[in-house]
């Protein structure tokens, strides 16, 4: 039993079987990569884990509790945070405010009416958010509008916002897509650091094999909505089925 257990999950879009019988178990405090060609159903699988989609069949258990039928914010409050394929941040807000919101969510839950208090007078929130910005190496950008930052910085901020909630499971959907080499390497370092410093489980979808092989402890290969194999990085590299379905085209 892992912290996340996906059993027989299927999802159909009209005539397209996007996911068919996916079984997957992510062990606590591990880094688990999900790879596969375009359209394999990786993002769809992630959407089924966070409440954006409801699978047609199967079950998804997080830490012994089903996530199915819960709304995204409830699933997040259970301890699952997600980084999107294109960064989802609060573009109209400052970087500091972006970081304060997850800290509020962590402290106050899904809703709290604090309409009169001064936001900056909440010392504990401000301090935690500031510390997180320092950790993310973005302290000097705190007053910037989040929308005006580079894509790499937006991604960094989004990861930081997810971490600020101290999730138990962090889901990343192609965190380095469209990034320059230097940014990609920074992201790898950042994720390694997170993994070393925290009790956190990471599930990562990635196309970049360099990223996958530097981080992952287990890899699941998904093709046409079904897992082909699940194994350690060493074994995946040499696996004939994987070469045929995936690495063959990429190499």
């Amino acid at each position: 039993m892992g912290i996340l257990d996906v059993k027989d999950v299927g999802k159909r879009f009209g005539g397209l079987q996007a996911l068919g019988n996916v079984n997957l178990s992510v062990a606590e405090n591990s880094v688990h990569a999900i790879i596969g060609p375009n359209g394999a159903g990786k993002s769809t699988l992630l959407n089924c884990l966070v409440g954006k989609l409801v699978p047609d069949t199967g079950s998804v258990m997080f830490d012994g509790q089903s996530v199915l039928g819960r709304s995204p914010h409830e699933i997040n409050q259970m301890g699952i945070s997600r980084v999107f394929q294109t960064p989802e941040i609060f573009g109209d807000l400052t970087v500091m405010e972006n970081m304060m919101i997850p800290v509020f969510a962590k402290r106050d839950g899904a809703f709290r009416m604090h309409a009169i208090e001064n936001m900056m007078a909440e010392r504990d929130i401000v301090e935690t958010a500031e510390k997180m910005l320092v950790d993310m190496n973005m302290a000097e950008k705190r007053h910037m509008h989040a929308a005006s930052m580079s894509r790499g910085d937006k991604r960094r901020l989004e990861i930081g916002m997810c971490l600020a909630q101290e999730p138990r499971l962090l889901l990343l959907d192609e965190p380095t897509a469209g990034m320059a080499r230097a940014d990609t390497n920074n992201t790898i370092d950042l994720l390694k650091q997170i993994k070393d410093e925290r009790d956190i489980t990471i599930a990562i979808i990635e196309h970049d094999m360099h990223v996958v092989f530097s981080l992952a402890e287990r890899i699941t290969v998904l093709a046409q909505g079904t897992p082909l194999v699940e194994d350690t990085p060493e074994n995946i590299k040499g696996h004939p089925k994987v070469r045929e379905a995936y690495l063959g085209e990429a190499a």
Binding site: V50, E88, I89, F90, G91, A105, Q165
Partner: peptide
């Protein structure tokens, strides 16, 4: 007030930050 501005800015992120 900040949460209200966040609603305007990006509801998806708000949802996936555990806020309703």
């Amino acid at each position: 007030g900040m949460m209200l501005r966040a609603v305007k800015s990006n509801q998806t992120r708000l949802n996936y930050t555990g806020l309703n």
